[in-house]
Each structure stands twice: as C-alpha cells, then as structure tokens.
Simulated scan of single mutants.
Amino acid sequence: MQLHIRPETSNDYNAVFDLVEDAFKNEAKSDHQEQFLVERLRKSAAFMPQLSLVAEADGQLVGYILLTKIKIVNDKATAFEALALAPVAVLQRYQGKGIGAALIQAAHLEAQALDYKAIVLLGHADYYPKFGYRKASEYGIRLPFDVPDENCMVIELATGALQGVTGTVEYPAAFFE
C-alpha cells in the first residue's frame, strides 16, 4: 500500500466527513460527533488549512488529522500559543497499518515548520506516548473539563518549549458548540 499525505482541500470535505464518522463509529469513548467538530473547526479562526491533512491510499482517502490553534493560559492571564490535535481518524478497514502514525508524524513536521512549539490532545493513554506525548499534568497544564489525567497529553515540538508554561488549555468555541 502506497500512502500519500497532503493538505486537505475543499473537494475532500465530504469524504473526510464520512471517513471521520467511520473511524469513530465503534469507539466506546466517543460521542460520535467528531465529524461535526471538524466542520465547525474549519469555519473557526483557529483553523489553518496547512494543518488539516489527509492520507490517500488505494485511490481513496483513508486517514485524516487536524491541528487547530489553542492557548495555554496561566493564572496571570499570560497565554502560550499551541495546537490541539483533534481528531486523528483512519477508516476502520485501514486501521492498524501505520496510517495514524504517519499522519501524526507529518502533522508534527508541519507544525514545527510553522514554528509551533507544542501540541495538546485528549486521547488514548497507551497510543500517543509512543510519539513522545506525556501527561499534561507533568507540565502543570490542564484541560478546562474533567477527564482522566492519563488521557490529557502534550508534546514539546522543540526541546524545553514548555519550560515555565503552566495553566489551562483555552480551546476555540467551536469545540463546545
């Protein structure tokens, strides 16, 4: 299987909607609304087209990842610009073939090229650490809602980027609509 990762275009929107819906339909810890989140985020100021990537194989879209702008705000209202990873999705019949990993690595490279220093996510505690993600609580970073500590993670895209950064993640309103 030959995999090609590229920025999403508006021509991909319908296929991405179906792909994300398929990827999460059997996920127990999902509200099964991720495809609608993607649509809302595309319309928000937090959206950057170069951080919305698709993976193609066998003549179709098989994977998708989206990074959007967020802030980590401390108790003195100082904000640190970062990114949120949500979602990463792979068609069910293509899962377990390294497509999600390839998308995550490509997204990290693109984020670094845009000079972003960190990415925050809410995800599977046993999947993301292999890419360098660590518990956000280790940095004094928390999400604005109650979720298990092991599922709140962050990665530094530059060594020491989160030194002295603490606070609460401030998501775009599109995450909560």
Rank of each mutant, 00 (worst) to 15 (best):
M1T: 12
L3F: 01
H4R: 10
H4P: 08
H4D: 10
E8T: 08
S10M: 11
N14V: 12
A15F: 05
V16A: 05
F17Q: 13
D22H: 12
A23C: 09
F24R: 12
E27N: 14
K29M: 13
S30Y: 07
E34V: 09
F36W: 14
R40P: 03
R40C: 02
L41A: 09
M48D: 13
S52Q: 01
V54L: 00
E56P: 04
A57S: 08
A57P: 03
D58R: 12
V62C: 00
T68N: 10
K69F: 06
I70W: 00
N74G: 02
K76C: 11
A77K: 15
T78C: 14
A79N: 05
F80H: 09
F80A: 06
F80V: 04
L85S: 11
L85M: 06
A86M: 03
P87K: 00
V88K: 06
A89I: 07
A89K: 06
Q92D: 14
R93T: 15
I99D: 01
G100S: 02
A101L: 05
L103Q: 06
I104W: 01
A106R: 13
A107N: 01
A107F: 02
H108C: 14
H108R: 11
E110I: 10
A111C: 03
A111V: 07
Q112D: 07
Q112G: 12
Y116V: 06
Y116T: 05
L121N: 09
L122G: 10
L122T: 08
A125R: 12
D126G: 14
P129S: 08
K130F: 08
K130H: 11
F131Y: 07
G132Y: 01
G132A: 01
Y133L: 08
R134H: 11
K135D: 06
K135M: 07
A136Y: 00
A136Q: 00
E138V: 05
Y139C: 06
I141P: 04
I141E: 03
R142I: 05
F145C: 04
F145V: 11
D146M: 13
V147G: 13
N151A: 15
C152F: 11
M153W: 03
E156G: 04
A158G: 10
T159W: 07
T159G: 14
A161T: 09
L162C: 06
T166C: 04
P172D: 03
P172Y: 05
E177G: 11
